[in-house]
Computed example of a mutant assay.
Amino acid sequence: MTAWDLPGAARNELKTLSKDNAENVARHLAMAARLIDDDPELAHQHALAASRSAGRVGVVRETVAITAYAVGDFALALRELRTHRRITGSDEQLPLIVDSERGVGRPDRALEEGRAVDRSTLTVPVRVQLAIAMSGARLDLGETERALQELDIPEADPDRAFEWSPALFSARAAVLEELGRHEEASEWERRAQIAADALDAAAGVADREVIVVEEIDLIDDEGGVDVASGVIPVDDVDADVAVASAEDAVDGSARSDVDDRSGDREDER
């Protein structure tokens, strides 16, 4: 593991450190990102090690927060998230702040945090994650109908799949199940699986950030790919959908990679 295993945006934040320290911190952050899904406790230890050497760097505090959340230490996650916000001025981790407030048993405070920010200033992925977190806080308070209202956002389009769609659709399914609307819940859960399958299939074709699930009429009359539309047929996905790259739809003559978002949660992790 080397410093170059850390995404460039995160490495740039370490430029205020000495060369040797920056390399050491970068390696710890890269290990935290690699381990977060399989061994969150060890990932957290790497994040803490980075923090001991670079506690005033935003991405370091962000990584400590994310790994603390992953191991269930919501109080520490909140402290680190607030520090990260103070250092960077960024609201990108607002959904995690809301969810961490829920984790320490303060759903009312979670809702206050979510309402305190103008959502139009947030990126779409963050806005979607915030809607899911706010819906969860409503469920914590027993406000099931309002939990569903939190998820009534333009991005909840069952025929379009983006990186956030499976989680958003599943969240809606869970709330509908709570309301006893079982058929609707099943349909949204089915759509969540379709979106996940479509995204997985497209990920095998190219490294793209945005995938759009379009109606099948984008396929030509003989069932082939309409090259101009950029549609990519996907096996084992419902007959009424196919996968298309939004980037390709804009420029049908060429396919181009899209820069990774947000240093990902991947940047943080």
Rank of each mutant, 00 (worst) to 15 (best):
P7Q: 02
R11Y: 04
T16W: 05
K19E: 10
A26T: 03
R27T: 09
H28K: 04
H28A: 05
M31H: 10
H44L: 01
Q45E: 12
S51I: 00
V60W: 05
R61L: 07
T63A: 15
I66D: 01
A68P: 14
Y69K: 13
A70K: 15
V71W: 07
D73T: 08
F74V: 02
F74S: 11
L76P: 10
L76Q: 14
L76K: 15
R79F: 02
R85S: 10
S90Y: 05
D91C: 07
L94K: 11
L94N: 08
L96H: 13
V104L: 08
G105K: 04
R106F: 02
D108K: 07
R109I: 07
L111R: 03
T121L: 11
L122R: 00
T123F: 01
V124C: 00
V124P: 01
P125C: 06
Q129L: 14
I132R: 12
G136Q: 15
G142C: 10
T144N: 04
E155K: 06
D157F: 07
R160K: 08
W164H: 14
L168V: 01
R172P: 02
A174E: 14
V175Y: 08
V175M: 12
V175C: 11
E178Q: 15
E178V: 04
L179A: 03
E183G: 02
R191C: 04
A192H: 07
A196F: 12
D197I: 00
A198Q: 05
L199K: 10
A202P: 02
D207L: 08
D207Y: 14
E215L: 14
E215T: 15
I216W: 11
I216H: 11
D220G: 02
D221W: 02
E222I: 03
G224E: 13
S229T: 15
G230K: 13
P233Q: 09
P233H: 10
D238N: 12
A239E: 12
V243L: 14
V243F: 10
A244S: 15
A249W: 07
